[in-house]
Design a protein around this nucleic acid. Structure first.
Lengths: 139, 139
DNA sequence: CATTATTCCTATCAATTTAATAGGAATTAC
DNA sequence: GTAATTCCTATTAAATTGATAGGAATAATG
């Protein structure tokens, strides 16, 4: 399951990508437009900023803006920040590899084998999707 | 993250697929070979049996066996039983569709759009992988 | 028939994670 | 100096997960 954090984060990033004015976007505006609890969204945008995806401006007329053009922001990066590793098991994670306790040899592990395939196919989607794609209207 | 339940379940199914004798496989044998807590594994195999993937024989010399040939058991079925819906959000689930509370129109939802792609690519893996594939040695 | 080995059933528990809230500090525009 | 905003961090409630517990039911065997 996708966490609400990730879902809200993606929606917020999409909203910010669609912003045409040269002003940063206020959390409150996103929250009310997208039906997201504002305080929760604050913490989410904060982590996106700390991860370098968003920039912010404090104080009156402050808000959030993208650090790069939407076409430059890959889902791989966004998802890793919001949802964590893309792999479903640490033993097939590219960025957060960890050996399994139970598995004596992962090259003989059927789960390992399957999860590599899932990881690769998901990566393929995330690598080829940017915020610009998400921000396009309709499906 | 893949749950331990699913991980253990997949390992157990692989183990059972590799069984060459005509005797059913005991839970205890799987548990000790695969380093899985036995009591936990019992409940997992029980759900696989109730789902029709495994059959069982009670009493002495009892155990579990596959209801179909490993080549007939698709990962889509196994994963749905063990891990639940394959989709990461209910609004793109084929078998467990549910509308999102927050989303007024899912055809304009960027998350929806992205998660359909992820679902399809994952389904593609699961539809084309059977227990027989998992049971092959090595990777 | 008694014994032993197994699956079956269901309740419970502890730990973790998730989703959300709270309360104010710091900063900025005006 | 006031209002509007982000920033920070703690706390909480609910849900989920992973595991355990204890025995009931069933079947094979001598």
């Amino acid at each position: 399951m996708l966490s609400k954090k990730t879902k809200y984060g993606l929606k917020a990033l999409t909203f910010i990508s669609r912003n045409e004015s040269d002003m940063p976007v206020r959390v409150g505006e996103i929250a009310s437009s997208e039906n997201i609890p504002q305080k929760f969204l604050e913490t989410i945008l904060l982590t996106l900023r700390k991860a370098g995806i968003l920039g912010s401006k404090k104080g009156k007329h402050g808000g959030y803006y993208l650090r790069s053009h939407p076409s430059e922001v890959k889902m791989t990066d966004v998802m890793r920040v919001l949802e964590g590793p893309i792999a479903m098991v640490p033993c097939v994670s590219l960025n957060y590899y960890e050996k399994c306790d139970d598995c004596p040899d992962e090259h003989q592990c059927s789960v390992h084998k399957l999860m590599i395939e899932v990881r690769d196919s998901t990566l393929n989607v995330f690598r080829n999707t940017t915020l610009e794609d998400l921000a396009l209207k309709d499906s």
